[in-house]
Write a protein that binds this DNA or RNA. Sequence first.
RNA 1: GGAGACGUAGCCAAGUGGUAAGGCGACGGACUGCAAAUCCGUUAUUCGGCGGUUCGACUCCGCCCGUCUCCUCCA
Length: 476
Amino acid sequence: MAIQIYNTMSRRKENFEPLNPPNVTIYNCGPTVYDRFHIGNARNFIFMDMVRRWLEYRGFTVRFVQNLTDIDDKIINRARAEELDFRAITGRYTAAYFEDAGRLGVRPADVHPKATEHIGDIVKLIQRLIDRGLAYEAGGSVYFSVKSFKPYGKLSGRKTEDLLEGARVEVSAEKRDAADFALWKAAKPGEPKWDSPWGPGRPGWHIECSAMAMVELGETIDIHAGGIDLSFPHHENEIAQSEGATGKPFARYWMHNGFLNIDSEKMSKSLGNFLRADQILERWPAAAVRHFLLSGHYRSPLDLSENAMEDSASAVKRIQDGIETAEKLLELVSGKTTDGETDETRELRERVETAMDDDFNTPRALAVLFDAVGLIHETRKQVEGDGEERLAAIGRLSALLAFVREFAEFFGLTASIGASTADKLVEPLMQLLIETRALARKRKAFDVADMIRDRLADIGISLEDHPQGTIWKRKE
RNA sequence: GGAGACGUAGCCAAGUGGUAAGGCGACGGACUGCAAAUCCGUUAUUCGGCGGUUCGACUCCGCCCGUCUCCUCCA
C-alpha cells in the first residue's frame, strides 16, 4: 500500500510517487528570522520533520530543505528599532531558531538556504522571467505580471479577475495591475541593498523560495510544504515564478498544515495572541508539546489551551511510565531483554504504518501506541505472577517494550526520559533506601517506611511497590 | 462579496455506507499496612439541526444553524 498524501493542488489524497525514487526532495517554507518563532510555527516544523522521518522509515532517501528568510520588511523594522545592523538581528534569531527547534526535537534540515546568500540566483531567475515577458521593471523595482501567467490561481482556486476586484492588494503606481507582486524591490534610503541590473535593491519575499528550491533541489521538487496561510499568495506566487521560468511543474505535492488556534482564533504575530516556543517550553516538557501538536490531524485546526496541555502532559506520562515500568521490571526479573518482534508487535506495527501511510494520521498512530502501553501493563501482570507462562510473558513484554520505545522515540514523546543524567551514586543509594524501607515494612515500622517514601516524594522521587520488588521513578 | 475548512461523549480527538478508535477527566471495584502505579467495570442507542437517497447513513445529496480560515504580512 502506497503512502497517500493530500495534495492541496488537487484537493484530494494521492498516491505518493516521487520523481526519482527512492529519492525524495522536500522544500519547507521556514521562518523569517526577526523574532523567536511561536508554537504555531512549531506545528509546521515538527510536522514536516516527522514527514521527513516517516519517508525515511519507509525507505526513501530524503533531501530536506528549509529556508531561513533573512531579509524583509520585518527584519529591517526590527533592526531599525534596535538600532542594529540587520545582520545582527538575523544572526541572533537564526541561532534562536536552532536552539528552540532542537529543544522540540526537530532535526536541522539538510540545507538551510538564506536569501542573502542567493542574491545571484535570485537575480538570474528574475532576469529569466523578464526575458520571457512575465515580469517588467519599473522605477528600479521588478514586478511579476500576474495576467501574463495564465494558470495563476490554480493552487488556491482563485481567479485573477477576483483578485483585481478585491483591490485590497497594495496600491502602487508602478504596477501595471494591482495583483502584480514584487520580485525585486528598489532600495529606499538606509535600507540594506544589493546590486542588480535594475539598480540597488533587495529581493521580494516570494522569489527567494523559487530560486533556492530550484538551486538546491532542481526545477521540479516532490513535496513543497508550509502553513495553510502560505497557500495564498506565497505559494501561488512561487508557482507563477517557477513554472513561468521553467515551464515545468514546480512541486508534485503541496502539503499545508492547519493553524494552531488559541481560544479558537488563529495564533499569529499580527494578532499578538501568540506564545513563543521558548515560553511554552518553560512550562511544559517538549514531549508534552509534541504530543499536543500531533494529537490532531495536521490539516485540522488545533486549539491550544491550558487544559489541552495538561491532558497531553498526562498522556505522555502514561507512555513514559509504561516504558520505564517495563524496563525496570524486566531488569528486576531477568536482567536481560531481547528485542525480537512477536506476532503481536508486528500487528501493532502494521496498524501504525497504515495510519501513517494514510496522509500522516498521527492521532490514529498514537492510539496504537496507547494500545501497546495497555498491553504492556497486561503482560506485566503475567511477569509478576508465577508459573509456566512467566517466561513467555517476559519475551512478550520485551517485544512490546521495544515497540513502544521505538515509536515513542519516533514521535518524540520520550524527550524527558533520562534528561538528567543520573550520578553514578544515585542508583546504589536508591537501592539502599529501598532496602531500608523494605526492612522497616517487614518489621511493621510503617512510620519509618512512610517517612522514607514521603521524603523521597518531596525531592521528586516516587516509589512503586511491586510483588517483585520496589521501583523508583523521578517525577516531572 | 468570492474561496475553503470544520461542528463526534464533561474536555481533546480518530473513523467508516453495515451499526462509534485512542487520550484526559469522573465514578465504582480490585490490589496495598496506607499509598503510588496498574488492572477491571461504568461514562455517545449516538455523531450541529431538518429533510432526501438507501435494505441500512454518523458516513452520500440538499437546505438551515453555528465556529474558523484565506482573499493584506503571517506556519
